[in-house]
């Protein structure tokens, strides 16, 4: 049982929570994640990257997007409430060293797990460029935090409502074409974005890591549900990763596996909203009403 001590809504569907987890706070390193369960009997196990930790307070911070039934349940918990199970820190920490010039590409919610990695790379002496990509202005998160540590911050949005109207791969390509090219790229975000980042850096031979977010159950190497093909070999993301050489990952295989339960998940998510069970809808509507906007049409 882990108590939530603070909660903040970063955008319509993105939440930041801080929770008590002294052991995890003590052990965690950049790049590691936890598995969270709001209900130990019937709940799903949700893998979430640790966005930050405070060892003095014994707390960790998680940032997540309410995209399905289970993350909705999590988003509904308020400070003072308890999360029934939090397991971690899981996975291997990011290998941090002074590479020279490091480019961190975070897409959407992927900016959250990128933050501690960017921080660590900066602390190790790297020149740090951060690219933040989002669908629109409303979904750009952690801009302030990233600006504080990056030597250069580039923001792109799909619709041009903020920063450049572009995909993250555009500025990434420009950086690779420049002299000297970056020494390292790290990419975290939607799998399709990570795949295209890998394709972008490949011709320039810029070493690229991707942090994979596959389906997981136990997170301890017991089930193999998280497996991906990397360099022709089957690897378990939860124990062998989550970071892998992006040029070696079988992205198409991973994308297919991620869709395994898509029809079931979509149906469950739809039912949640249609049955009026989703309290976030009501919350979102209240926020929108306050801002003088129309009905939200659901948190996601």
């Amino acid at each position: 049982m882990n108590k939530i001590i603070a909660k903040e809504r970063l955008s319509q569907e993105v939440f930041r929570i801080e929770l008590e987890a002294p052991h995890i706070a003590r052990e965690r390193k950049a790049g590691q994640f936890v598995i969270v369960q709001t209900d130990v009997d019937f709940g799903e196990r949700i893998p979430l990257t640790i966005a930050d930790a405070d060892t003095a307070k014994g707390s960790i911070t998680l940032i997540f997007q309410a995209v399905g039934v289970s993350t909705h349940r999590l988003a509904e918990l308020e400070p003072g409430a308890y999360i029934e199970a939090v397991l971690g820190p899981l996975g291997n920490p990011t290998h941090i060293e002074n590479y020279g010039h490091a480019v961190c590409v975070g897409g959407g919610i992927g900016v959250a797990p990128m933050h501690p990695i960017a921080q660590a790379l900066k602390a190790a002496g790297n020149k740090l460029t951060v690219i933040i990509g989002a669908r629109n202005k409303e979904l750009v998160i952690l801009e302030k935090e990233m600006r504080a540590i990056a030597d250069e911050l580039i923001i792109v949005t799909d619709d041009g409502s903020y920063g450049r109207k572009a995909l993250v791969t555009e500025p990434l390509k420009e950086l690779c074409e420049a002299e000297p090219k970056p020494d390292l790229a790290v990419t975290i975000g939607p799998p399709i974005m990570m795949k295209f980042c890998a394709e972008t850096t490949r011709p320039y031979k810029v070493k690229t890591f991707a942090s994979l977010n596959t389906i997981m159950i136990d997170g301890t190497g017991m089930c193999g549900g998280c497996r991906v093909t990397v360099g022709g070999k089957t690897r378990f993301v939860c124990v062998d990763g989550p970071e892998f050489d992006a040029h070696e990952v079988d992205w198409n295989g991973m994308l297919l596996r991620l869709g395994a339960y898509k029809p079931l998940e979509d149906a469950a998510h739809k039912e949640l909203h249609e049955s009026g069970q989703c309290r976030l809808d009501a919350l979102a509507d209240a926020v929108m009403a306050k801002a003088g906007l129309g009905k939200s049409g659901g948190a996601s």
Partner: peptide
């Protein structure tokens, strides 16, 4: 690694 292939551990868990 096709979708629909499970370890018994995953399926049973």
């Amino acid at each position: 690694n096709y979708v629909g292939v499970f370890s018994a551990n995953e399926y049973l868990t």
